[in-house]
Design a protein around this nucleic acid. Structure first.
Lengths: 140, 140
DNA sequence: CCCCGTTACTTGAGTGAATCAAGGATCATT
DNA sequence: AATGATCCTTGATTCACTCAAGTAACGGGG
């Protein structure tokens, strides 16, 4: 279990609530991935492959080094969840795509990661809109 | 940069907002720690040492294995940010405490991690209360 | 057509988080 | 005094992540 990105000084109620949310969210994500024997990073990459795409595109979207993606995709490939086909238009590049088993695993992950769904579901539609507006404003 | 605990399927606006919040929060936490050459885990442990405490207490609070804490505290100790004194009441146990430099580093981290403060600061006091109430309700 | 800089990805080395299994030391109880 | 539990450490392993360096292929200018 990853250590929480905890509050240093809890100056306000709202800040504490934000921290609690982030902590619970992260733990739930990790737990859902673990249920499928995936690391959070693997689940994340798998979830970005609704359409096949290149390694570089993944790296840029996820904000990490390309060599990091190489490793994670290699593990997903070894698990049979992903293929890494050559790009016919550019022989330097690879196109990563989920296999049928990858699709199924991704779907099972989406089902297992209930936290966001459940949390939002505790709010009425009006409250959901309020929350969205407040979060958007807070994010600046 | 840690991969985001991204949305698998973005079914609602509110869920997407939650994900964005978590992602930005985590990245800001990591960036603040990196500014002080600390890992997120190190910053986290350092932040829990306002009072001296045992390794086991840390492990339990942070929800991880004791041996994980052993490593992190060892690195903090090597950095001169923490001491690991024997507990006079129980010679098996160790009491971990921040050094003066650890106090200063922790304070600088708290200053550098502006995200939660800034985000909440974009809201009026009323809005802050609303956000807190909504998050608490969503967390169940 | 060939050089050349750029791009796409891989490889290797290194750090650190995290978990598990096993072990040593000490405590606390019988 | 023996036993079992508790506190922590050590060792082994896996994985994420980063950086530096390398390979292969694209694409444009001479």
């Amino acid at each position: 279990m990853a250590l929480p990105n905890g509050p240093v000084t809890t100056s306000s109620e709202a800040e504490a609530a934000l921290f609690d949310l982030v902590d619970v969210y992260d733990r739930a994500y990790e737990a859902a991935a673990a249920k499928l024997s995936l690391s959070p990073a693997q689940a994340c990459v798998l979830g970005r492959l609704d359409e096949r795409r290149g390694m570089g595109a993944l790296a840029e979207e996820l904000g990490c080094d390309a060599s990091n993606i190489t490793q994670i995709v290699a593990r997903l490939e070894a698990l049979g969840l992903v293929t890494r086909e050559p790009n016919p238009r550019d022989r330097r590049a690879r196109l990563v795509a989920r296999t049928p088993r990858g699709d199924e695993t991704n779907h099972r992950f989406a089902t297992a990661f209930t936290f966001a769904r459940t949390a939002v579901g505790r709010l009425s539609p009006d409250e959901q809109d309020q929350l969205t507006a407040l979060l958007r404003k807070a994010l600046g």
